Simulated scan of single mutants.
Amino acid sequence: MSISFTSSIISRLKRDIAEIERQIVQDKSKIAKINAKIKQLQTDKPEGSSPADQSKMTQIKKLSAQAVQLAESQTGLAKQLSVKNAELRLQLAKEKGI
């Protein structure tokens, strides 16, 4: 493999890794905001069965589902990140071996 080809693969992997890391940080921020909103709704809700209370419960359920979805996404992103880092280490080793 030529040096320029290996270098382009390394550059692409570094960009991919940076993008995945950026997405992980954004998702963690979203999860924190969702959890704060859920906590706020839980402390604000009076114990009753008025339509407003039901609306808050619906909001809490939707926000909880979003948080779960983002947490699952975090797992997938972590796996992608480890694969990309392994590929990068392999390509860097190849580059040094050339």
Rank of each mutant, 00 (worst) to 15 (best):
L77R: 12
K94N: 10
I3V: 14
E19N: 15
K45T: 08
I9S: 01
I60H: 10
D53C: 12
I38H: 06
E47D: 11
F5R: 12
E47T: 03
L77A: 11
D53Q: 13
T6C: 13
G48P: 03
S50Y: 06
T58I: 06
A93S: 09
Q74Y: 05
R89E: 14
N85M: 08
I3C: 12
I10T: 10
I10L: 12
S82N: 10
S7H: 12
P46E: 03
A71C: 07
I98H: 12
E95F: 13
K14W: 06
I24T: 04
L88K: 03
A71N: 14
K37W: 01
L90I: 09
I38P: 02
S11F: 02
I60W: 10
I34R: 00
I9R: 05
K62P: 00
V83L: 10
S64I: 02
R12D: 06
M57K: 12
V83D: 15
K37D: 07
R12L: 07
N85F: 01
I24R: 05
S29M: 02
I38V: 12
P51E: 05
R12Q: 11
K79P: 08
S49T: 07
D44W: 06
I34M: 02
L77K: 13
V83A: 13
A52T: 05
Q54S: 06
G76Y: 07
Q74S: 08
A36Y: 13
E19D: 14
A67E: 07
I10A: 09
I10G: 10
Q59C: 01
K96P: 01
K84N: 08
K30T: 06
D16R: 14
Q69A: 15
Q80K: 11
K62Y: 07
I34N: 02
R22E: 09
A32Y: 10
E72I: 08
L70D: 04
A93G: 02
I60E: 09
K39N: 11
K94R: 12
A67C: 09
N35Y: 11
A52V: 03
